[in-house]
Design a protein around this nucleic acid. Structure first.
Lengths: 129, 129
DNA sequence: GATACTACTATCCTAAAGGATACCGGTATC
DNA sequence: GATACCGGTATCCTTTAGGATAGTAGTATC
């Protein structure tokens, strides 16, 4: 592994950059956090869906929680809520192009997670032997 | 932005790869999650420290929580606990080389977080106007 | 007129994370 | 002998995420 300039999250090691960096990392963790954020993003990956449709796809989610999670995702501009004046009204939720900016982050998270799981399984095995 | 093959976390869109991918992402989020994981990694970035030293650096952390967080970081192989038979005993906590594997992940998380904060601030402003 | 569907909201409850406070055994210092 | 430091543990409490359950307004369907 090459030597890098940064140590963990901080590019330079002044107090302010560290505080900012930690806050930034935490922001990202925060928008992805919770039991349903990832499943929700996935559920909408193939196109817009209605409230009940999502609820059926995710099966275990209650309407209260679904409503809350959708609002958070909307605030973060990951999805758009569209109301159609049909009778009765139709409401759809659709991922925004901006939601795709998460792809790189999610890729890193996925790869590290896969690698880590393998590593931990392996070292548990060695300790048992 | 170029078209990518993957949609969000899933490389291919079969049910299994998705479930695995979500689990992997969640694993990573999990090891970084909690109020003190990042500050702790940072506190140890400049070399090993003793229990009380860390507690002083992080100021607000209680010994119970610090103890628990250190154990979790140790289980994930991010740090090593070393006991020295001095009188009285000295215990140090030291980051492992493996902990540096987080650098890439943290870099992505930090950059996305910085960018996102700017974006959200900007769109709030536009809505007020 | 009764039932059912949509898109939710309201109320109550539980489990888990984390904090406050106190304490412990061992050692060193005054 | 009293006090203080180290590396924690034990007990209780609060806050928060999330679940269970019920209900709502509006419309359509039988």
């Amino acid at each position: 592994m090459e030597a890098t300039i940064e140590k963990e999250v901080c590019v330079t090691h002044t107090k302010e950059t560290c505080v900012t960096a930690v806050a930034a990392v935490r922001d990202t963790l925060y928008v992805l956090n919770g039991k349903w954020k990832l499943p929700l993003l996935l559920a909408l990956a193939n196109g817009p869906k209605r409230f009940k449709e999502i609820q059926r796809d995710l099966q275990e989610i209650t309407p209260k929680v679904l409503s809350k999670e959708l609002k958070e995702l909307e605030l973060n501009e990951f999805l758009e809520r569209k109301v159609f004046a049909t009778t009765p009204v139709t409401v759809t939720y659709e991922l925004t192009p901006y939601s795709r900016s998460l792809d790189r982050v999610l890729k890193e998270l996925r790869e590290w997670g896969l690698q880590h799981r393998q590593r931990i399984i392996k070292s548990r095995k060695h300790k048992v032997e």
